[in-house]
Design a protein around this nucleic acid. Sequence first.
DNA 1: TTGTACGCGTTATCAC
DNA 2: GTGATAACGCGTACAA
Lengths: 351, 351
Amino acid sequence: MMETATQRPPRITQTEIARRANVSQGVVSAVLSGKPSPIRVSAAVRDRVLRAAMESGYRPNSSARAMRTGLYHNLGYFLDTAPGAMEENDFPEFRAGVFDAASARDFFVSLIRLPNRDFAKNPIPKAFREAHLDTLILNNMGGLTPELQQAILTSGFPIVYLNEKHDTNAVYFDDYEDTRMLTEYVIQRGYKRIAFFAENTRRPQHYSEQLRQAAFIATMQAHRLAPEVQRWHFREERTQIINWLRSAQRPQAVLCYRDRDALTLQSCATEAGLRIPQDLAVASASNEQRLDDYFVVPLTTLVQPRYDAAVAAVHMALDLVLDRKIATRPAKVYRATLREGESVPVRPVSR
Amino acid sequence: MMETATQRPPRITQTEIARRANVSQGVVSAVLSGKPSPIRVSAAVRDRVLRAAMESGYRPNSSARAMRTGLYHNLGYFLDTAPGAMEENDFPEFRAGVFDAASARDFFVSLIRLPNRDFAKNPIPKAFREAHLDTLILNNMGGLTPELQQAILTSGFPIVYLNEKHDTNAVYFDDYEDTRMLTEYVIQRGYKRIAFFAENTRRPQHYSEQLRQAAFIATMQAHRLAPEVQRWHFREERTQIINWLRSAQRPQAVLCYRDRDALTLQSCATEAGLRIPQDLAVASASNEQRLDDYFVVPLTTLVQPRYDAAVAAVHMALDLVLDRKIATRPAKVYRATLREGESVPVRPVSR
DNA sequence: TTGTACGCGTTATCAC
DNA sequence: GTGATAACGCGTACAA
């Protein structure tokens, strides 16, 4: 157990440092800023100032600095968790990337969400009502109210969309092409009766779901194969999934929207007496790292470079902040990489 | 697709509002603050000011306010994600509770972590080097370096520990008593050969793991039953788990450290040809909401009120900030509630 | 090489 | 009721 501080140290200002080091406050500022400055100080004075700062535990007041410089050094990370939106969209890789990139460029990260409770009372988060942020990373699942969109757009800082397709000021994944690639991969491995499977969540979904399904259908048709799409709710319609897997028309391979669907499928397949991949091949179009450990056979899945995308989004946002002349940057699109597991082996020729 | 703003609106100040409304800036401040003030303004002036503020899209500069009031209105939420720590400790319920409670009391939330990369270069996050936070919620998994602990303790703001046992300024769960209760529950349902199971992660674990295991052992011994403890790595030692479950000495019931262990067990049990709960009862000492959907039979598990705990931690922290006289509050301990699924049915008497 | 003076936007305290 | 004015901590232009 750590000790808990029982009293708070006094706030130390540059003026106080100046008093202790017997110099003026302007010199303290010049020394502590570290930056090249018109003010050239002697080594002796520099040392006196630095030592006084160390010994007093000085920490610069970022509010005062913000007021002086016009930069808050604050980046907002918005997570859409409105009622009906998917909490799970907040991948830890996104958070880590946003934080690391912001830290590396000396910015704080302010967490912004829609409050779960009291939403009606206060539909616009404080971050949009007060001047506090220099820029915003918007990781949105489509749950924004019109008034909130308005508040964001009029808030006056540049916005970069993460995981949402826009022409400019956005970083996202090429969901269509990635899934096309995955579908091609499964077909090339010898499978013909392939189904697309996504859990029916009865909630607003990320647009990638439609894109991936469309890519699957188009690719199948390009190969003159019949695309099948299945969609059930795991808890409520579990037996239907199992019956589907037990039926004579069951697919040879299933292409899942994301890993959790593959996990659902694994569970149902086991109960249906099917082994993966011997009796049923399974692939997924979007890796969810948290679930990796629960697949009996390593899953063949598409890995989106979420950490890198988040880093890119932050850089884009901060470039917009620092180059005040430009308000727009072209979008950056990332491709997923195929992580080959053992769930889609080459199909033995059976004819 | 939303429109992207192509130009930034100018920053509007109270002085500008005053000019437009043809009043003095002091009146603007009094009107916009909303608080009772010695300045009594007429309804007409009030309306002029409010309208000017609305039309100009005025947003108060929180840095200026912070400098004047000495309050940043900023709460730090620290997540220990150091190399070796468990990313998964960051339950979404914690985040939601912290954000909602802070928002309700008009505070921003600053996300703080240890940078994944460049850690050696910059071991102390900016949040502890600059004066920017009024207080800190520390959700720690034990990965803090000594120098970082020092930086936090000397940073000058009150700290509240979330999910970590301390005498004061902490909110945590009664891991020992909760697991004792769960063990009693399983015993009362007629099971005798009960094993404690936790995945071997080869990483620093939260202290609750030891507490829960100790509680299990003590409770078993109090009932003159032999406690068995098993610990394997899912990926690397999967066959050992399966062999254990297939053996004649296999337990009648397994008490898992947390839900993910129960999921591991479900997977292995299925492969071993055992049905849950007919052949093997399973309980868990810590619910992980994200995994709920993957249990074939609803899991009997302990649900920690994480959202409420996070809210309580924020309130404790903000009380410390606002009542500057008191630097210490007694810890708050939460109990888990038993969520009865169907994985631990009453055991038919067999003798 | 160092000190002085000013202003950022806000709150709060005064006389008017 | 209202309109000046000081002060918060820091950065910087300019004077010494």
